[in-house]
Each structure stands twice: as C-alpha cells, then as structure tokens.
Design a protein around this nucleic acid. Structure first.
Length: 601
RNA sequence: GGCUGGGUAGCUCAGCUGGUUAGAGCGGUGGAUUCAUAACCCACAGGUCGACGGUUCAAGUCCGUCUCCAGCCA
C-alpha cells in the first residue's frame, strides 16, 4: 500500500499571513491531503512555522520580547488560524524544536565530515552601537548609483541596482540608526552546492513535463547560471547553534575552526527545510507521548523519510514560486550531501544504507495579487487570514482561492469577482440544490429517503454523466490541478440541478408519487455524493451537507460506477440544513473595498 | 541589463506532443420552470487567439524578430 507525505512551505513566524500565502502553499496542500485521506491512503500532512533569523530577532525586540517567547506566541496564533481555515495538519511544528536542532546539527556534521562544507572568511558589517553584526539589508545608506538616501545594503529600492553594503555612502545601522559601524572579518561555513550541479541537473531533467513548468525552468535557470556555494551560517543569536566542536575531521583531515565559528548559527534557509523532517519527528514524538510513551522510536518517523522503509512513500511539496530554488537546489543538496561521503582522494560513496528521500512531486504556484498589485503588510493592502475569517466563514475563502489558484500564472483577487463567483457557485448552485431537494423531501416525503420505484432513462443518463465527470474530477485531483478540479466539481453540481429540473418531482408527485419518490431518492443521493466530493475544498460545509442526509463524514472518495447514486438507505431521515451560504451583498463589497483598498489603492 | 513566465470572447481564464465550425464560468440576450437561498435549467451571444515574417498539405499550438505586462536576479 502506498503512502503520501505532504508538506507545504513553512510560513515565516513573523506576522499574519495573507491570502496569497494560503493560495500558494497551505491550502492546496490541505486539499490534496484531504483527497488522499478520502481515498483511504495513509497520509501525513505536515507544516510548521519557520522561526529563525534576524527578522524574528528584530520583531521580537520591537514587541519587547525575547525571540523564544515571541515565537511561542506567534506560533500559537498561526496554529489557531490554520485550524480555523480547516487546514488538516497532522502536526504543525516549529523549526525551533529540539528535534530540528538535532537534525540540523547532525546534517551539518555529516556534510562537514563528507567534505561538502568548507570554511571561508567573509567581510561583515558590525555595528558597535548595536554590538552585533548586521545582515546586508539592515545596513542603509545613500545609493552610489542614483543618490537615493534610504538604499539597503543588498539592493537599492529606487534604482533596483544590486548592492554590497560597502558600496553605500554614509552607511548606518537600520536597527539603531547609528553610524558607528565597521567592516569586520568573520568565519563562515559554505555548503558546496557547486559539486552537486550535475546530479541536480539529472534529477531535475527527469522531472521535466511532470512538474509545473515554472518549477523546472526556475531550477534549471539556477543550474545554467552556475551553482554557487552558499553561506549557511550567520552572525546572529537566534537560530540553531553551529556545533563545530562536535565535528570530526573532514576527508582532508582538517578540523573545523571551533573558535572562529563560536556564537554563530545556521542560516534559516539551511535549517528550515530540514524542519520538514524535524516536524515528522515532532509528530511521531507527540503520538508516542499521547500513547503513554516518552518519545518515538526513530523508525516511527524515519519510515517516512529514509529508504528502504520509505520506498512506498510519495512525497509532495507545495510552495510559492519564490521558494522554488531552495527546494530544487538548496535542500536537495543537503540531502544528497548527507547521503554521500568522499574520501581524501575525492572518491564518492554512499554514506549510509538508509538514504534520505527527495521530493517526488513538487507543486509550485505563482502569486495571488490583490487588484493586480501585491499584497502588502506595510501598506495594509489586501486581506490577511485573521481579517478574512472576521468577514466570512473559511469555506468561502477556500473555495474562491482554489477555484482561482495561481497554478499556471499569477492570479488576481478582486472583491467583485470574489462576490460573483462565491454567490454563484456556493450559494446558487450548491447551496440551493441541497436546500431545494431536502425541503421537498421534508414536505412531501415525511423527511425521509423514499423507497420504491425503479430508475428510468433519466436516472441512467444522470448516473453516466456524473460518473464521467467524477472520473475527470478525480484525474484533476491526482494531477494536483485544483483549479480545473473545482470546475469539474461545479459541473457535477450543475448536473444535479439539471436532473431535478427535468425529473420535476413536484410535478410527478400529483400523478405518480412513486416516480417522484425515485427522483427525490436520487436527488438525496446526489446530496450525499456532493458532500464527499466537496470535503477537500469546503470541509465545514461538506460536513453540514452530509449531516442533512445522514451520510458518513468524512466519507470515502467514490470510485464511481454502479451504486454511485444508491448509497442512502430508504427511510433514512432527511433534514434541510440552515442556509449553507449566505450571499455576499453589494454593500459588503463596497465596505470591504473601502477598508482593504481597491483598484485605486 | 540578464533570465523566467505571460499577452486567447466585455471580465477571469482552459486550450497536451500542430489537424473538423477556437472552449468554460461570469456578465449580456431570449426561452422554460416554480420544488428551492428572485434561486435552478436550456439556448444564443461571432474573439483576424499582442504585431510582423517563416516552416508545413495544415499553426492559437513550431521557428525568428518586435512590442506590451508581471516576476526573479541568491
């Protein structure tokens, strides 16, 4: 039996995420996880907060908290919001967990001892006033090219030129504004990505046509430009400490400069992807504790990650396009590196008989814009997760975002389109269908599934049409084409409305109650089917729909064929649910546009 | 500047390895219906597929040039 491991890109700990983050990683991962579970496949869907780095340090300082406390609180907020959006994580972990610390340090040691990490001395800006090193973007000054006075040390926002902090005129600290800064030498570790270029290229080439175009072309672009070795340490306090004192010699017999590396931490982009494994360990530990043990056995989580135990696992990653390089080059290099070792003569060999798995299916997304521009925290532009839930239930957002998923190109959110589509699809087509047939069953058939009567041509045609659409829908789900999946699902709903209109049980009822009973029974079975098919997309509503006709929830994803519309036992009680989807009013749209910014913003 | 993606009906988008009258939803028009959240269902609505040139029996779909938009440049 195959298993499915699903991760979505880790949301950064700082700040509430906007709808774009939901669209580009968390929501599609959830839709897919729910689909796989409904198919009866053993599924593990994991996510975590990405907590390390300077941005966190500064945000914590601004909040008057130490980073650990800041992260703990922010993690709870994000966890809560995710739950309220129906994100069905098996575990929502933290990159600052002890498990991730151990893995990150273990991987770094193995990479060093295998000869894939080397030491280099780099020039870093140090602020005497702040008594800390400053990352490039926290050094600000005048751009030497255009004279813009607030240029950052990595790039000038005005002329977009890429800069080095030492290029700036009148440089100062972005933290304190102090000009008492200087350049100091600092020892750092570099991951030798360049030696993995050929292996990575072969791996990516094999995924062409299978992964989205944007994923393979982005990865190949990096490889074509020549992979550079990447600094994986930082002069920052909040992170996974570099544990060089625990490392053995590298293949050349060299030992790390323990003193020179003291007080440094790993770069967030080194430890964050490792948290995909770390969170699996956290999940296993949490289960073990729940079962009365103190901790998980390694095998409990390694069975998802290390071959040959994980040979039956298909690993799917979901992310926005900005994350693609780190998942196609950076993290795979780490895993390829720990799977290998070299001797002093440069001969490679497997490092272990249990190599780590690489991603099988990488789904990359473009951006969701807000009225053609970017969502912006600083400008208060666009809708953020907490605000969205204040306005409308999660299913409205889940549906619209999935139906407009930026799968092949950037997509745009506007309140007008949101209103039109949500009202039409959810309120008019789905909500009204459930309501009309349930109400009719209540008033004319004693609120129960009618018995008796035989299917006619109409029913056979409906079953065939639904079956065909279901096959289409299932195909889109398997292919992770969620936008198309919503279209197919909507078409199935339309088939239901069309059938009711044609079968017209309200007319048949007068002359041939038996005939009307067949139509109502089929209609109620459609309700049960809709609940099962809608569950990955709009789980909260799907549960209400299932409840209306006493269908199991969550139900199984139907395989199609005989019996598809014959699941409910005659006599089963029926109860029309309260209004499933209230329509979004024009006045609300006007108000929200005003509040969140419209086209002119 | 380099690179990546994209410019298809009023709007938002589908169109895989080139092949009958270029598709869907929304909007619009007409019809049908009254069970239902004034909802549902059906039909129609003609867009030189960014521009030009080329390859081919045949191009939105391949090649070249140009143009516009977006993003990326560690």
């Amino acid at each position: 039996m195959s298993r499915t491991l699903i991760t979505s890109a880790l949301p950064y700990i700082n700040g509430i995420k906007h709808l774009g983050t939901l669209a580009g990683s968390m929501l599609p991962a959830d839709v897919y996880a729910r689909f796989k579970r409904a198919q009866g496949i053993e599924t593990l869907y994991l996510c975590a907060t990405d907590e390390h780095g300077t941005t966190t340090e500064l945000a914590a300082a601004e909040a008057g908290l130490d980073p650990a406390t800041f992260c703990e609180r922010a993690h709870k907020v994000q966890h809560d919001l995710g739950r309220r959006f129906g994100l069905s994580w098996d575990h929502f972990g933290r990159s600052s967990s002890p498990q991730n610390h151990r893995l990150t340090q273990q991987f770094a040691r193995q990479l060093w001892e295998a000869g894939f990490i080397e030491e280099r001395v780099t020039q870093q800006v140090y602020s005497n006033t702040d008594r800390r090193f400053l990352p490039d973007r926290y050094v600000i000054g005048t751009c030497p090219h255009c004279g813009y006075e607030a240029a950052r040390g990595d790039q000038c926002e005005n002329c977009t030129r890429v800069l080095d902090p030492t290029d700036l005129i009148n440089p100062r600290s972005a933290v304190s504004g102090s000009t008492d800064i200087e350049v100091r030498s600092s020892k750092h570790l570099f991951l030798r990505q360049s030696v993995f270029s050929d292996k990575l290229r072969g791996w990516i080439d094999a995924k062409k046509g299978q992964w989205p175009l944007i994923v393979t072309s982005t990865a190949l672009k990096w490889l074509d430009e020549g992979l550079q070795d990447r600094g994986i340490t930082r002069d920052v306090a909040w992170g996974v400490p570099v544990n060089a004192d625990a490392w053995g010699p590298n293949p050349d017999g060299q030992r790390p400069d323990v003193e020179g590396l003291a007080g440094k931490v790993f770069y967030v982009w080194f430890d964050a992807p490792i948290e995909y494994i770390g969170v699996t360990w956290e999940w296993a530990d949490a289960r073990a504790v729940a079962a009365g043990r103190t901790a998980a056995d390694d095998q409990d989580w390694e069975r998802w990650w290390r071959l040959p135990l994980a040979a039956d696992v298909t690993y799917s990653e979901f992310m926005g396009k900005d994350n693609i390089p780190f998942h196609t080059v950076g993290f795979p290099t780490t895993l390829l590196g720990v799977n290998e070792k070299t001797d002093g003569k440069g001969v490679w060999s497997p490092a272990s008989n249990a190599p780590w798995k690489l991603v099988d299916e990488l789904k990359g997304f473009n951006y969701l814009d807000y009225y053609g521009g970017k969502f912006s925290t600083s400008q208060g532009r666009g809708v953020f997760m907490d605000q969205a839930l204040e306005l409308l239930p999660a299913d409205y957002w889940r549906w619209w975002i999935t139906a407009n998923s930026p799968e092949t190109s950037d997509a745009t959110f506007t309140w007008e389109q949101f209103q039109a589509q949500v009202n039409a699809d959810l309120a008019d087509v789905l909500g009204n269908f459930v309501n009309r047939i349930c109400k009719f069953a209540e008033t004319r058939f004693d609120a129960a599934v009618p018995a008796g009567g035989e299917w006619g041509e109409l029913e056979r045609k409906l079953a065939a049409d639904v079956d065909a659409k279901l096959a289409e829908l299932t195909g889109f789900m398997e292919g992770r084409e969620f936008r198309k999946a919503t279209t197919a699902l909507r078409q199935i709903w339309v088939l239901g409305n069309g059938y009711l209109t044609e079968a017209a049980p309200w007319t048949a009822f007068k002359a041939d109650p038996q005939r009307a009973g067949v139509a109502v029974r089929v209609g109620l079975n459609l309700v049960a089917l809709f609940a099962a098919l809608a569950e990955p997309f709009i789980p909260f509503t799907a549960e209400k729909i299932a409840g209306a006709v006493g269908a199991p929830f969550p139900g199984r994803w139907p395989a199609g064929g005989v019996g598809l519309l014959d699941q409910l036992a005659p006599g089963q009680a029926v109860r029309a649910p309260e209004v499933l989807f209230r329509k979004v009013e024009d006045a609300q749209v006007a108000e929200w546009r005003e509040r969140f910014g419209g086209p002119e913003a």
